[in-house]
Design a protein around this nucleic acid. Structure first.
Lengths: 87, 87, 87, 87
DNA sequence: AACGCATAAGTAAGAC
DNA sequence: GTCTTACTTATGCGTT
């Protein structure tokens, strides 16, 4: 305690929180690196990484929801005379 | 005081650059606000803003390129047994 | 009314919204380009663009608020034994 | 080779890549959640999460580099007559 | 429940 | 050419 009301912060607790965050961010960065590696590997195997990203994104949503969104998009595109997405 | 070796920075020029940036950022913020307004208006008219965003995004790319990407995505989806995008 | 119940979307209104957005996004991109130019010019004049960005960011907040945040940061840093920001 | 020349994509390999990415993204999301929890806990303990974020950010850079950047920022601020950061 | 903030993701440009 | 860095957009979260 330094005395008269400033810097009475509980440094130890603060430090603990910060170190926990840092540790977790380290783990997160590791995982991000592994994801990059997978994409690099896929690319080296002849796949298109960008398209794989799209697929991964699409799979995050339930099929039903995805199809509904796709259908709405098609309707908009059609209304604009840009119906490139459908057959 | 430009004399004793520190803070000899040309404050006027610096200030000029900063004010130019600030002015431009102001304009940019204004335009961003107007874009938001358009989306709000579209929503109020019964359109889905998110889908409009998608359309705007799609229109940024040349038709040909967009279709090629779409086709590749379809092939990947098909290979995965998720061929929801096509008819 | 096109007839059989789908794609009755008001294509004209939709198109109008989209074109307004596109026009505004065009303006926005222009302004973004001008901002970039200013930074490039500043850099060419020997200034550090990154630092200028920081200054611009700091100036967005009222002085008072900024100083309060800075003071709190200093206290945290001090509590951690990292009091590099103050003299 | 499934047959007549299209969709000869190696679905199994593709699927494998995608599932690896998805698994890793799952892990990443978990870690992100844990980081959030730490911030929530810190907040509940009376700390300011935003400031902690700043501290974590500052600690990412070597002390020396951080101080050099800080010094430059101070010089710019001083040149602008905004020397709020120093004493 | 809507609004703005804050994080995360994707994209594009620049440095090595 | 790769790899990082910065910008833009999009989504999610907390707030009011």
């Amino acid at each position: 305690m330094t005395g008269i009301g400033h810097n009475t912060i509980a440094g130890d607790r603060l430090k603990s929180f910060i170190e926990r965050v840092e540790r977790l961010e380290g783990e997160k960065a590791e995982v991000s690196g592994q994801i990059k590696e997978v994409y690099a590997e896929a690319k080296a195997s002849g796949f298109d990484a960008k398209t794989i990203r799209k697929v991964v994104g699409l799979r995050k949503k339930p099929t039903e929801e995805r199809q509904a969104e796709e259908a709405l998009l098609d309707r908009y595109m059609y209304a604009l005379g840009m119906a490139a997405l459908e057959e």
